[in-house]
Design a binder for these strands. Structure first.
Length: 198
DNA sequence: AAAGTTTACAACCGCTCGCTA
DNA sequence: TTAGCGAGCGGTTGTAAACTT
């Protein structure tokens, strides 16, 4: 039997209060993202470390780009999903300022519906490019290095980034240019995050 | 205006992986 | 070699807001 990650009776659950957010932000600004397990105690929070990590990554991080997904972001998600399936963290890694949770939610609530309406089965790998709405994504320019992403197992080999073998990138899905990404976030995103959280 | 339904998204849960002793 | 631990991931759930009847 797995040990619980924290004592449930000693932790808050549900929506985060502003006070909790402030404590978490202040702690991370001071000490950085360190050991999530010990963070709640150190920050004076009655929360599970996992919960703190999730709150920070999905909501409080200053580099998050919030608001509606742009059309090119949606295009990119669709293409990456066709290639990677439900590997949300990998997909999010190609979308600056977006989190895996955000991408996953957007897929489930918007994109899936959109694809279904277009007569595309969102659960099946779909070949894109022939459809007018899936216009060109801005892939890497030739001198733009792939953004390092958090990857598991042999994901980099799947994408061919680490291997350096260019032909590997297209060997499995010849119709796709796998150098998928969007441009890096602008500094204004950080400024935007300084706005009070609703 | 009230009740019922749907949508969007924040948060939780349980699992796997990688690291280390 | 392996058991234990922490971090991270993807699936699922809960709920507030928006919309419809």
């Amino acid at each position: 039997m797995r040990k619980p990650c924290c004592k449930k009776e000693e932790t808050n659950k549900g929506a985060w209060s502003q006070e909790e957010d402030q404590k978490l932000i202040a702690h991370i600004q001071k000490h950085g993202e360190g050991c999530w397990r010990s963070l709640p105690k150190a920050a004076g929070l009655r929360r599970c470390g996992k919960s703190c990590r999730l709150r920070w990554i999905n909501y409080l991080r200053p580099d998050l780009k919030r608001g509606n997904f742009e059309e090119d972001e949606e295009d990119l998600i669709i293409r990456l999903h066709a290639l990677l399936g439900n590997r949300w963290s990998l997909i999010a890694g190609r979308l600056p300022g977006r989190t895996d949770n955000e991408v996953k939610n957007h897929w489930n609530s918007h994109i899936r519906k959109k694809l279904t309406q277009m007569g595309i089965d969102p659960n099946k790998p779909h070949k894109l490019g022939g459809t007018a709405s899936f216009t060109g994504i801005s892939f890497f320019s030739k001198n733009q290095a792939p953004k390092p992403v958090n990857v598991h197992r042999d994901d980099n080999q799947i994408l061919g980034f680490e291997s350096g073998v260019e032909s590997n990138k297209t060997s499995c899905v010849p119709d796709l240019n796998l150098d998928l990404t969007l441009s890096t976030p602008t500094s204004t995103l950080v400024e935007e995050r300084q706005q009070p959280i609703p």
